[in-house]
Structures are given as structure tokens and as C-alpha cells.
Design a binder for these strands. Structure first.
Lengths: 106, 106
DNA sequence: TATATTTGCAATCAAACGGTTGCAAAAAGA
DNA sequence: TCTTTTTGCAACCGTTTGATTGCAAATATA
């Protein structure tokens, strides 16, 4: 059972849950109201998000508020650092120049 | 069959393939040499990367060179924009201040 | 032309995924 | 106390995933 951030954000429902929790901490029931699938299905998604520490829980009475952990999401950003230079405008333009030179050669 | 960038980068082997191709375009055989699994398994990963346009192919004779498409990866970066403010130092410090105030109250 | 190399496609299989229903535990309210 | 609400856990089920093996097509080489 793989449980990393990349696998967690692969599912569109989980991405939607994350976007919700980034705005405001919420209970499972409140989250589930935003989706068509059952509360248990949503709860399973929350569990997966918990296991990879994208969300943390804070219990108050019988309600559990789930909080988004932005620091964990940063891991994705760090991985993408290796590509960031490739899509920046300056480098893309250089790439075009090189491509044009290559085309003229052949 | 979902075929989006998020699902594509969920698999660690595919992430490794992407990192390889970001440095240099390569043939399936050359890519497969970097992994323990079979050439066909790697080829299937390449196919998935192709379907979501993270890589493009350029055939020369019987060899096919696969190129990384950084623009497509940018889609992940765009999605992460909504969280970026949350992990920036200035906001984290503000968060700490608020947390301290809250702790003093209770 | 005959052989070797490179690649994609099809069939198969165990494991994981995403969903459902049912149920039990704990807290809140009548 | 009895009932309702909120939640997690377990069992189950069809589909998808990631891997394997075998084979055919196309190109390069002897």
C-alpha cells in the first residue's frame, strides 16, 4: 500500500477535498456534503490524506475537524523544481532559437 | 481510463522516467536499462506518459526518441498555486503568531 | 536475402483502488 | 435514561493498475 503525496493527489475527489480544507478546516460530514458519493467513501479519502500527512485532525467533542497541512504539499513543489527552469519563458525562447538552428542545418 | 498528469506522476517509476527524459531524450531501450523491471513494463509507463502528453515521440529509423514536455507539467504547478501562499515564510510566521494568541486565550 | 535489433500490441494475473452497505462506539440532546 | 448524531471500522465487489510472457511488425546489418 503506497501512501505518498503524489498518490494522494492523483484522485480528483481527493484534490477537491484538499482544496476545500485549504480554505477552512471541516468535519467529515461537512466535507461529504460537497460530494455525491457516500460519507464513507469520502471518509476513506480523508483517511488516505491523513496517512500521508496532507491533513491533520483535531477532535472537539464528537466532531473531528480536519486541517490541511500545506508543508506536506510543498514536497510536490520541491520535486517540480527540477522542471521549473524548462518552462520559464526565457528558456523556452532559447529552446526555440536552438530548434530553428537545427532545422536550418538539416 | 483516466489519463491526466496527476495520475501519471503518481507512480514512482514514471516520475523517475520523467526525470531522465527532462535531462535528455531517450529511446525505450535506453530508458529500460535504468530500471530492474522488464522493457515492456517500462514501455507501458511511457505509453501512459504519452497519452497525457507528458512526453512526445520522434521516430528516426526504427528507434523512437521520447522527449519530455515541460509545458504539460506546468499544469501541476498551476494547481498548486492555490496553496503556495500557505507555505511561504511570511504567512507561516503570521500563522504562528495567531496560534500563540489562541494558546494564550485558552 | 537471411539474421539481428528495436519496438508495440495482446493475453494473463495478483494486488490495489474506489465505491457500497452494515454495524459499533462515543458524545450530545430530549 | 433513551434517542439522535457523528464518526470509524470491517466486509464485500467490480474495475483499474502494474507487472509478466509471448509474438508480430518494421528497420538495420551481414
Amino acid at each position: 500500500m503506497r501512501r505518498d503525496v503524489f498518490q494522494a493527489i492523483a484522485d480528483p475527489t481527493r484534490r477537491a477535498i484538499i482544496s476545500l480544507l485549504a480554505l477552512q478546516a471541516m468535519t467529515p460530514n461537512a466535507i461529504a456534503e460537497h460530494f455525491q458519493s457516500s460519507r464513507q467513501a469520502v471518509s476513506k479519502h480523508i483517511q488516505i490524506l491523513s496517512e500521508c500527512q496532507l491533513v491533520s485532525q483535531k477532535q472537539t467533542g464528537r466532531e473531528i475537524y480536519y486541517h490541511f497541512n500545506a508543508q506536506k504539499m510543498k514536497e510536490v513543489d520541491v520535486w517540480m523544481d527540477q522542471f521549473r527552469a524548462l518552462w520559464e519563458t526565457r528558456f523556452s525562447q532559447l529552446d526555440n532559437v536552438l530548434q530553428n538552428l537545427k532545422n536550418k542545418q538539416s
